[in-house]
Design a protein around this nucleic acid. Structure first.
Lengths: 240, 240
DNA sequence: CGTGGATTTGAGAGAAATCAAATCATGTGG
DNA sequence: CCACATGATTTGATTTCTCTCAAATCCACG
């Protein structure tokens, strides 16, 4: 079993990587590590020297404010490289944390920089990956700024569903949901108490429910309506 | 006077571009256009074939929700390339609009793609530019999700000040501010009425004031405190 | 079976929205 | 150069959403 497969599938889905590109990626030096739940992978202010590849489990990025509040910026799933931006930004501007127990790979910046210089297709595909990351931030800004809490949570859930589905990690209308209410609050800019009430409302409306680390969507269309969800921003389409 | 100077300065500040890189950038085909206030440069759903370079004036990006609300995603100033991401994302996921009368340059994707394939330094520096764009989104997410309206506005103003200062567009503690209250509301996720009240409060606290398209910061330290502003996320530092 | 984290519910307070209307520019045409 | 129209700003009153505080319950795990 090849550890970079998820990455290649994600980057390459029908893309223009040739054998040389694939081999280049496969031969990247990668240090596999087991991470425990809540483990800090990198902190704001760090000078990173590796990029992290999420192989198994969930990883999230978060930023703290000076008054002790915290915003979760993104939730990452297998195949994602949550801190790929550190390749060209000297200092981390946020934390990187294991949301669950994880298997992660760490690839030295030097190796990645060398790879992207010698294989322009790989550079393009990695660059594009950071651009999709960025497109997701934009949609989250809309979510945080313009939708009220019910829609915010619905939207968040649907995004996770689509992304997990794309890497084969859904089981019908259910999927793993290790994100506790406190964290949902930090991702959506609402309090834990309110997250709980919103979940209740979504459950009572027959839209979705969370149980034992699993989320089930009961009414896909209804949830899409509430969350005003349109997956275009995920840019699943191919470039060429 | 060279139209790409602002761009080169911005990308290159002390960076590793050599003469060949600079010449490559300078010889990009670029179509100069005058834009009138409010003009739509590109729409959500468009397939872009050019990248826009803001040469003079302000340009902003915005996304609409299905219920007619709108989130301003970023405000761009001379030297910025607000839709550089369109180079590798097939469809625009937001609108691009002239906030003021503008001079803008349009560079065909084909020329840019060719340039980045032949000059890896240029690729790196443009990639890095999109990564900083992304870092700014992250900070805006914190702003939208975690700060209340007073801090939100203060933070926004300080970011604009630092960015304008970096390209020599401030005049002491004052700078051009063509952003009307309605737009500030759309950028910060608050209503126009409330923007007005927040501006009043900031004025009464002696922190800043807006008059006739100009913003003046009266108490830098106070505003930084209210906005919890730390410029690290702008990544002004050099890579190497 | 105890313990700490996570979830749930209630009550009251607060921030910001909406609705409504007045005032203030600013720019155009007569 | 003034009248008018349109958009921007300002202020007030009321409503709504979400927060905070507090406490109870549930649950997983050692």
């Amino acid at each position: 079993m090849d550890i970079t497969s998820a990455l290649i599938r994600k980057l390459g889905i029908g893309a223009k990587l040739d054998d040389e590109d694939i081999n280049g990626i496969r031969s990247l030096p990668i240090a596999i590590k087991q991470l425990s739940i809540g483990e800090l992978i990198a902190s704001e202010g760090d000078r990173a020297t590796n990029c992290c590849l999420c192989i198994e489990g969930f990883i999230y990025r978060a930023k703290n404010t000076s008054d002790g509040r915290r915003q979760i910026l993104s939730v990452h799933i297998p195949g994602d490289m949550p801190d790929l931006q550190s390749l060209y930004l000297r200092l981390m501007d946020h934390d990187l944390i294991a949301m669950t127990q994880c298997t992660a790979g760490f690839i030295p910046h030097a190796a990645l920089r060398h790879l992207v210089r010698s294989l322009p297709n790989v550079a393009e595909v990695l660059w594009r990956d950071t651009l999709i990351d960025s497109a997701i931030f934009r949609e989250w800004m809309v979510n945080l700024g313009q939708r009220e809490s019910l829609g915010r949570l619905a939207h968040f859930v649907l995004e996770m569903q689509r992304r997990l589905h794309a890497v084969g990690m859904t089981d019908g209308d259910s999927f793993r949901w290790p994100i506790v209410q406190h964290q949902m609050g930090e991702a959506l800019g609402i309090s834990v108490v309110h997250v709980n009430r919103v979940l209740k409302e979504l459950r009572e409306r027959g839209l979705m429910e969370v149980h034992g680390g699993k989320l089930t969507i009961l009414d896909q269309a209804g949830l899409v309506e509430v969350g005003q969800f349109d997956a275009a921003y995920l840019h699943d389409d191919q470039m060429h």
